[in-house]
């Protein structure tokens, strides 16, 4: 008992102990930081496949929502669905559904009635859950996603670190209180803040592993020209799908499928007004008045060129 109450730490002078405690905290945090490093950091990246799968890439970028976006957009480009202002619906005389992949068929069937773009996306996301598991597993096997066991390990490391900080701080706190010293605010603050920081640090959830993040960046850098192609050339359906998989719906702004982009990101009122007032702006994508000429079923097939001509500024 005597050794518990009288030892170098228990007898340490307050400021000296605080210095010692801060050192322990720093060492614990650094050790934990090193232990929770992503194990894929030094792994070589996988090769870019000769035939990249837009659905797999979409899952890598934005999970279920990414896949739903690609499936929805694919159905629009191929003439199964159409965009009408803010809503998406089936094209009455759509092509034969037997040409659709199972995942696309699920989405198509789910959208039997017209709904807003966001609802359509939600419905599509609901309908593809089963397919997502296969992509999850594939990407997990390639260590592109952050594995749950790594997350569990991180939590363990964090808890051990927090325990060290907590134990040392609590011990000294009890000793101090036992000796009738109550100037312990800084000690408590140090301990509590460092534990909060440590637990936040180890419990951060990342969808992608380091390898996954770098691989996605590499894919985006490699296929970045698709954005230019979508605006100024005639990309194939596959090119469009890959574009949406890699860069999201935002990449469709200013392309032939601007109406689809606007269904999700409608122009704000002030922007519309300011653009309407600018008579020199003849861009098709600028005003809602023009938007309608490029939306609806006219954009539901790949025949919609980049033109949307005739929407001059007048």
């Amino acid at each position: 008992m005597n050794a518990l109450l009288h030892n170098p730490i228990a007898d340490m002078y307050g400021p000296d102990f605080l210095l010692f405690y801060c050192s322990v905290i720093v060492i614990t945090l650094v050790t934990c930081w090193r232990l929770v490093q992503d194990p894929t950091k030094n792994h070589p990246l996988p090769l870019i496949p000769a035939e990249p799968d837009p659905y797999q890439i979409a899952y890598l970028r934005s999970q279920e929502t990414g896949i739903a976006n690609v499936a929805l957009f694919d159905l629009i480009v191929r003439g199964y669905l159409q965009v009408n202002e803010q809503s998406i619906s089936q094209v009455p005389n759509h092509p034969d559904v037997s040409q659709l992949e199972p995942i696309e068929r699920e989405v198509f069937d789910k959208l039997s009635s017209s709904s807003t773009a966001k609802t359509s996306l939600w419905l599509a996301t609901e309908s593809i859950q089963l397919y997502c598991n296969a992509y999850e597993e594939k990407l997990q096997n390639e260590q592109l996603l952050y594995a749950s066991q790594w997350q569990e390990w991180n939590i363990k490391v964090g808890l051990i670190g927090a325990m060290i900080i907590f134990s040392l701080g609590s011990y000294k706190l009890l000793i101090a209180l036992g000796k009738g010293r109550y100037n312990v605010g800084f000690l408590i603050a140090n301990g509590v803040l460092s534990i909060i920081f440590l637990l936040w640090f180890v419990s951060r959830r990342s969808h992608l592993s380091y390898r996954g993040k770098v691989y996605l960046q590499q894919l985006q850098a490699t296929f970045t020209r698709l954005q230019h192609k979508a605006k100024y050339e005639m990309p194939s359906v596959f090119d469009y799908n890959l574009l949406v998989a890699l860069f999201g719906i935002e990449a469709l702004a200013g392309t032939s499928y601007d109406s689809y982009y606007k269904a999700f990101f409608p122009p704000t009122f002030s922007r519309t007004v300011s653009r309407r007032s600018n008579s020199s702006d003849s861009s098709c994508s600028s005003s809602s008045g023009c938007g309608s000429s490029c939306s609806s079923s006219s954009c539901s097939s790949s025949s919609c060129g980049g033109g949307c001509g005739g929407c001059g500024g007048s």
Partner: peptide, 12 residues
């Protein structure tokens, strides 16, 4: 550089 995307889409 301008055809890097197409190059990787026609790698074979």
């Amino acid at each position: 550089e301008p055809f890097i995307s197409d190059l990787f889409l026609n790698r074979q």
